[in-house]
Amino acid sequence: MEGTRGGRVAQAAGRAADSKSFERAARMGYVASGLLHALIGLIALQIAGGGGGDADSSGAVAALADQPGGIFLIWACFLGCLALALFQATRVFLDSGEDRKEVWKKRASDAGSAVVYGAIGVSFGVFALGGSSDSEQSQVTWTGRVLSQPAGQWLVGLAGAVIAGIGIYFIFKGVTRRFRNDLKAVPGRTWQRTATTTGIAGFVAKGVSLLILGVLVIAAAVTADPEKSTGLDGALRALHEAPLGWLVLGAVGVGLIFYGLYMALIRARFGKL
Rank of each mutant, 00 (worst) to 15 (best):
I40G: 02
I40D: 03
G41R: 00
L42T: 05
L42N: 03
L42F: 12
L42P: 00
I43V: 15
I43F: 04
A44Q: 01
A44K: 02
A44L: 03
L45V: 04
Q46M: 10
I47Q: 10
A48W: 00
A48L: 01
G49D: 06
G49K: 05
G50E: 02
G50A: 02
G51M: 06
G52F: 01
G53D: 14
G53C: 06
A55W: 00
A55Q: 04
S57K: 11
S57N: 13
S58Y: 10
G59N: 03
G59R: 01
A60S: 14
A60N: 06
A60D: 05
A60E: 01
V61Q: 05
V61N: 01
A62V: 09
A63I: 09
L64G: 03
A65T: 02
Q67I: 01
G69T: 14
G69D: 07
G70I: 11
G70M: 05
I71K: 15
I71D: 15
F72W: 14
L73T: 13
L73V: 13
I74W: 05
I74H: 04
I74S: 12
W75G: 05
W75Y: 11
A76H: 08
A76W: 14
A76G: 09
A76C: 09
A76N: 08
C77Y: 13
C77P: 10
F78C: 14
